[in-house]
């Protein structure tokens, strides 16, 4: 099986989500190649090679959207290269790419994948529905290449199968009017500490923290003290208290830290699907009936505005 991974990068390194898919592809066996849209393909290819990618098809973004240009580039290559399966991360650019490619090639998509299985020629993608209570497996029945999008944190990323990935530059791509969308500016929000998806400890706040002004002293402080990252429920993202990048859940990020601490979060299924896979869960909520307690290893029925400051003091006192 020839598997292609639509690679994304951060600071010229492949993203963790990309490496997770590459690791999984290695386990499935066959040839692994990547398609990368960016001007730093050589650097990114080094990282990809360490995980077993043998070849990187490098595409110049031409100032456009990575996913849109990437889809047009892949569409131009599939006949000659004949990949069997193309994997995309369920990210902003990954979603653009799989969507536009699907329409170009007239192929169905399976998205939100959390598991992936190959049996001979058949490829099955597993997803979770109804807030993760039901698991649904679906397989491709049409023509190849199969197109699947995988939610980050579905697989572990482990180096292996080290090769030196060769870089093949793809010529100028005609993305049609899609290519008219140009990126004029980039704004990077400051972040302290580890990334939400990679932190060993995640402390998330929900509506129960009471007000926007409490997020810093309760959620950020505790996260910083534990060298973790701070997250949020959608309720307080929609309320504008914290940026969307902090949202955990179905329409936000999936996290699997060693410890997840939920402060004033009720535990809606759409939130829980993004954090249920954590090794340990601590919940503090004043409603003893809150659904979050059904997944918590330690539940404190109490007021976060009282318990959290005490907790912070106690941890500080331990030095």
């Amino acid at each position: 099986m020839k598997i292609w991974v639509f690679a994304e990068s951060e600071n010229s390194n492949p993203t963790t989500a990309t490496l997770e898919m590459v690791t999984k592809a290695r386990e499935l066996g066959g040839t692994i190649e990547a398609v990368y849209v960016g001007t730093d393909a050589d650097a990114v290819a080094t990282g990809l090679g360490e995980y077993g990618v043998s070849k990187v098809h490098a595409v110049d973004p031409q100032g456009g959207l990575v996913g849109v240009v990437g889809a047009a580039a892949i569409a131009g290559m599939v006949d000659a290269e004949a990949p069997d399966l193309i994997l995309f991360a369920q990210t902003y650019d990954g979603r653009d790419a799989i969507a536009r490619l699907s329409a170009r090639l007239d192929r169905t998509v399976l998205t939100n994948g959390m598991s992936l299985a190959v049996d001979g020629d058949s490829v099955t993608v597993g997803t979770a529905v109804f807030g993760g209570t039901l698991l649904v497996d679906a397989k491709f029945t049409g023509e190849k290449p199969y197109l699947a999008a995988i939610r980050p944190k579905s697989f572990a990323a482990e180096p292996g199968g080290a090769t030196t990935a060769s870089v093949a530059q793809v010529g100028t791509v005609d993305a049609g009017r899609g290519g008219e969308a140009k990126v004029l500016e980039r704004h990077v929000e400051e972040r302290e500490g580890p990334k939400l998806e990679e932190a060993a400890v995640v402390v998330s706040g929900g509506r129960g923290i009471g007000e926007e002004a409490n997020y810093g002293p309760l959620v950020d402080s505790l996260a910083n003290l534990l060298s973790g990252a701070s997250g949020a429920s959608r309720a307080i993202v929609d309320a504008g208290w914290v940026p969307y990048s902090k949202q955990v859940g179905q329409t936000g990020k999936t996290v699997k830290p060693k410890v997840y601490i939920a402060l004033g979060i009720s535990g809606a299924t759409q939130h829980m699907v993004g954090m249920k896979g954590s090794d340990n869960i601590i919940a503090i909520n004043k409603d003893g009936e809150a659904p979050i307690f059904s997944v918590a290893d330690l539940g404190i029925v109490g007021d976060v505005t009282k318990v959290v400051p005490q907790l912070i003091e106690a941890i500080k006192a331990k030095g």
Binding site: L65, G67, V68, A71, Q90, Y92, R95, D96, I98, A99, R100, S102, A103, R104, V109, T111, N112, A149, G176, R177, G178, G179, E180, A181
Partner: peptide, 17 residues
């Protein structure tokens, strides 16, 4: 999560997602 960009590609229009 793919419909908007698929519609755009089918119409031959840019997609800003």
């Amino acid at each position: 999560g793919t419909v908007p960009a698929q519609v755009a590609e089918l119409l031959g229009w840019p997609s800003l997602t």
